[in-house]
Amino acid sequence: MMNCDQARSFVDAWERGEPEAAPRLGAFLSHLGGCASCSARFSGLAGLFLRDLGSPAEARRSADRGFVDAVMARVEAKGRATALRPRRGPLILRRRFVALAAAAIFIVGLGLGLLFDLPGQDRIKVRFVLDAPDAQTVFLAGDFTAWRFQSYELHRAGPGSPWELSVPLKKGRLYSYNFVIDGKRWIVDPSVAETVNDGFGGSSSLMRL
């Protein structure tokens, strides 16, 4: 299953025009079906993704029809391709089945308005992730922590794994934050392009939910 970071990475790849993003389209669409946050952010672009990363026939259809129709067209196309070419082997079949199932879940998810990741109507759980293999500790500090970091420690599964922490935050507002390495080094989030001058000679990351 694709996670939010990978979904954003997929959009980045599309942004840069990387054709390598195409095989991840199905997983991306299925992620949108289960993630209210990413769906709200990117579902309006799904037609463009289909046009640019799907087959030419899918692209033509997605240009003329609504988004859900376009996804359905993709499902149908995949179904036909699977039926016509079973000789390509069980692994391919399984992949096609997974892609079909993912697209179907996405459509159902949109229809039912499933909000898997929301701890409350006005809050969303945000996962902060940092690769810092040499760090002994990583903390999170921002305006939502009153800039105190001691209570917001990121954890990792093991040496070499990324540091992670999930924090529920209110939707519809801006946040600035830093990671604090080993209690003394304040850095911006390398996965976020938006930064704000902190007025002290450094920067903080900026995000809007």
Binding site: D5, R8, S9, D12, V129, L130, D131, A132, P133, D134, P162, I181, I187, D189, P190, S191, V192, A193
Partner: peptide, 13 residues
Amino acid sequence: RQNGRSQRADGLF
């Protein structure tokens, strides 16, 4: 935007 996997100009990561 470096997708969190993660390169900083200072080479820390």
